[in-house]
Amino acid sequence: MHSPKFGSITNKHMIIDFRSDTVTRPTPAMLEAMMKATVGDDVFGEDPAVNELEQTAATLFGKEAALFCPSGTMTNQIAIKCHTQPGDEVICDADAHIYQYEGGGIAANSGASVKLLPGDRGRINALQVEQAIQPDDVHRPRTSLVCVENTSNRGGGSCYDFEELKKIKQVCDNNGLPFHIDGARLFNALVAKNETPRPYGELFDSISICLSKSLGCPVGSLLLGDARFIKKAKRVRKLFGGGMRQVGYLAAAGIYALQHHIERLSEDHEHAKMIGAALQTQTYVERVMPVETNIVIFETKETSAKDLVALLKDQSILAYAIAPTKVRLVLHLDITKEMVTRTIQILENLKSA
């Protein structure tokens, strides 16, 4: 493969980090809220900030309860363990985070297998789910859970159509299956689709939402469900070593994010579309996946993703190679309009060698 080269670009001192929306740091206002938090021992259920965060999130989605956890991987893995028994099978897209990026946790934590479906940019449909459900046969694993991811990370931040989710829910109900959503970036989908949280609360048996991605918190995710489910989930969290003590300092960041960082996600989406449009016309780009939210994924031509990422790093732009010819850029609250403009300038000055 040929490697592109840069034209003459100056001002290399400014680091622009597109590797993930997990790289954000608390804003001054968020830090202030964290410092002022009233805390207690959360394992005893005595941390006021955690209790407020959990109740705020549960109310937002119309669920009975929520559970604050260190990571989105933990909230997903807790949900899967609560919904399954060893030997069961989980239905999800082949690119789902629960399968691709959670360390084999479905097998290790729950003893379950996975039925992988070839979706459309990370999105599966009701017919696929219906056809994937195992028959009642002792030779087969027992289908016990359906999981979707919204937005889809490897799908380039793609969003589900809510009507399709309703159809999948109907298949789940017809077959007695719980329905879980990995909503690590669910707020991005809600903003992009001009939707509200409560219908999602009504549709899903369990919901995982991440605070440390687009919402800009330093740590934390929430698992939502009915009271009985969350009681079970709290026991599993303890089993996984996820019980935390005076964690209200982090919960306060989550409260602040839910109050102040949701509407601004549209800025990230607009910035992502600007970069996606710039990439469309570059000779070293084979294809840009449709940009719906804050993720831009493009396929390289005549160079490897690894080489392109290395060249971008030389220009103080950090990106992520997610496949041999695929590069991912993720927009977030630490990326300014100036950074977007500079990034586009650099991308447009790349020339094929």
Results as ranks from 00 to 15, higher is better:
11 N>P: 00
206 S>I: 06
132 A>Q: 08
256 Y>S: 06
347 L>E: 04
110 S>R: 04
63 K>H: 02
292 E>H: 12
193 K>W: 00
130 E>P: 01
25 R>E: 13
22 T>E: 12
76 N>T: 02
11 N>W: 01
120 D>Y: 11
238 K>A: 10
306 K>D: 09
293 T>A: 06
271 H>A: 14
27 T>L: 12
89 E>T: 15
309 V>T: 14
303 T>A: 05
40 G>A: 08
260 H>L: 03
80 I>G: 01
238 K>I: 02
267 E>C: 10
348 E>H: 12
29 A>H: 10
210 C>K: 02
134 Q>S: 13
72 G>P: 01
249 Y>L: 13
253 A>E: 11
117 L>F: 02
119 G>D: 04
205 D>Q: 11
173 D>K: 13
317 I>E: 06
197 P>I: 04
160 Y>S: 05
248 G>Q: 07
193 K>V: 05
290 P>R: 11
79 A>W: 07
165 L>K: 06
32 E>I: 03
41 D>R: 07
243 G>P: 00
4 P>I: 04
245 R>W: 02
26 P>D: 05
35 M>T: 10
336 T>C: 03
239 L>H: 12
48 P>N: 09
271 H>T: 04
18 F>T: 06
94 A>W: 07
341 T>E: 14
152 S>D: 11
142 R>F: 00
4 P>A: 05
227 A>V: 11
103 G>Y: 10
288 V>L: 03
334 D>Y: 00
24 T>Y: 03
290 P>C: 09
89 E>G: 10
175 N>A: 03
327 V>R: 10
204 F>G: 05
166 K>L: 13
162 F>W: 06
265 L>A: 07
279 L>I: 07
217 C>K: 04
173 D>I: 08
55 Q>V: 02
116 L>R: 13
304 S>F: 06
171 V>L: 08
245 R>A: 12
155 G>H: 08
222 L>V: 07
294 N>K: 07
186 L>H: 09
175 N>Q: 06
294 N>F: 00
40 G>D: 08
74 M>N: 02
205 D>Y: 00
289 M>R: 14
20 S>P: 05
251 A>V: 05
5 K>A: 06
240 F>S: 00
331 L>S: 09
35 M>S: 14
325 T>A: 13
227 A>I: 11
319 A>H: 06
7 G>M: 04
89 E>M: 14
245 R>S: 14
98 I>N: 03
196 T>G: 01
312 L>Q: 10
44 F>C: 09
21 D>S: 15
273 K>E: 09
8 S>G: 05
156 G>S: 07
239 L>C: 08
325 T>Y: 11
29 A>P: 00
140 R>D: 10
14 M>F: 02
325 T>Q: 15
